[in-house]
């Protein structure tokens, strides 16, 4: 099967919280407790990952929405990033030459103008200091989206305990 006919994997939709804010697509994975931030290009490609469309079809769809033709290498890069972030249902087919190209290499190859639209998925790291509520005291629940344990305590088996 030629690479342009290759089917793009299916996007994962279950156990995810998705919010669009300020032109970014924010995704919270309820399984891994990880959050991701997708730029517009990544989000568009992710939207069209339905497990049915070929690379050509996805490319045309995105061209219609972005008004610019995205090279297939760029789409593969996004698919690869989506896979790494756990946002696809199945693995990306191995063996494509384009898949081995990094984002930086691609930016160099495709030029600055295209680089602006390069797909990008950033992990949203909750800083250690982040605290949504009063910190969890001894034997209070922790982990997941619970508040962190108070200073001097550690989170053990989803409960704050003394070290």
């Amino acid at each position: 099967m030629g690479k342009t006919r290759q089917i793009i994997p299916t996007a994962r939709r279950d156990e995810l919280v998705i919010q669009e804010v300020d032109g970014e697509t924010l995704v919270y994975d309820l399984k891994s407790y990880k959050a991701h931030c997708l730029n517009r290009t990544s989000a568009l490609i992710w939207k069209h990952c339905d497990g049915k469309r070929s690379m050509d079809e996805v490319s045309r769809k995105i061209e219609a929405e972005l008004g610019t033709l995205l090279p297939q290498e760029v789409i593969w890069l996004a698919v690869e990033q989506l896979e790494k972030s756990g946002l696809l249902q199945e693995a990306v087919p191995r063996g494509s030459v384009e898949r081995r190209m990094s984002r930086r290499e691609m930016a160099r190859k495709l030029g600055i103008a295209t680089a602006i639209a390069l797909p990008f998925i950033a992990s949203i790291e909750a800083p250690a200091a982040i605290q949504a509520a009063s910190c969890a005291g001894p034997e209070e629940p922790c982990g997941g989206t619970n508040p962190p344990c108070c200073p001097g305590l550690i989170c053990f088996s989803n409960s704050c305990v003394f070290p």
Partner: peptide
Amino acid sequence: QQLHDVYRLYQLLSVIY
């Protein structure tokens, strides 16, 4: 940017909450 990341995270956590 660190504050921005927390802002992004809160956008998602508020849905769950």
